[in-house]
Amino acid sequence: MSKSVKKVLLFIGVALVMIFTLAPLIWAFIISISPGKELASLARHWLPDSFTLMNYKQVLSLSDNAASFKNSLLNSLIVATVTTFFSLIFGSLGAYAFARLRFRMKDRLAVIFLITQMVPSIAIALPMYLIFNRIGLLDTKSALVLANLSFTLPFIIWMMRAFFESIPKELEESAFVDGLGRFGALLRIILPISAPGLFAIGVFAYLNTWNEFNTALVLTGSSQSKTMPVVINEFLGRFSVDYGLMASSGIIGLLPPVLLTLFFQRYLVDGMTAGAVKG
């Protein structure tokens, strides 16, 4: 295949993936700037006759009651960031143990970790509510961080383990020879090489926490802990769905994760070369 043909194919492929990814988003954007009564004619014209920023204004000014969207955005940011931070630390430590160390019950423990995530959250939500009620952490961000950690850690350990296992053992072994302990080898050799993997599981922890709804619904009660998905659900009234508000809040809610991933991108690009080890 000549280079230009390859280029065209690449372009077509990327374009197709982007259309699939972005078409629903653009649709959401159109809904968010359309006046309510135009929604029914959008299918025919694709764009509203007149557009409005009312929905955005309204979402950002919702503050007179429990449903303060801005507040929930902040809560979500805090919960997701803290959860991601601890997920990365605890998760990569645990994953290293599975990837490199020999210990009893290893395989069984790995499967048990996974089983904890297989039970439908419907069965888990109520007793978890009882726990946090008991220790007085209901309606706090800490409770959300802890709960989300318990959801992300098992998965993260599995994912990170796969990344660690793809790193040649010789790297570490030579580090031991050089007098680095296990911890030193993990910190100075393995983790830097695994930057792309760390980025990926960081995004995983962040976005899953960002979107977590079922547990957040059960554990929160007021604006001091309600996260964004919980507040967005409040646009669903008994016989009214505010499509405009939902779409605009969904789009505003995209900004933090998208900006963060843009910023941390570079770790995805050059893990191998960014580390202390160069070929």
């Binding site: 429990a66 619904l217 009660g221």
Partner: peptide, 20 residues
């Protein structure tokens, strides 16, 4: 004090309250 949640979310929260 009113706990405001989405229309469909009232039921699970209420059930949790009853069950506890």
């Amino acid at each position: 004090q009113t706990d405001t949640v989405g229309n469909a979310d009232v039921t699970p929260k209420l059930m949790n309250s009853f069950m506890s």
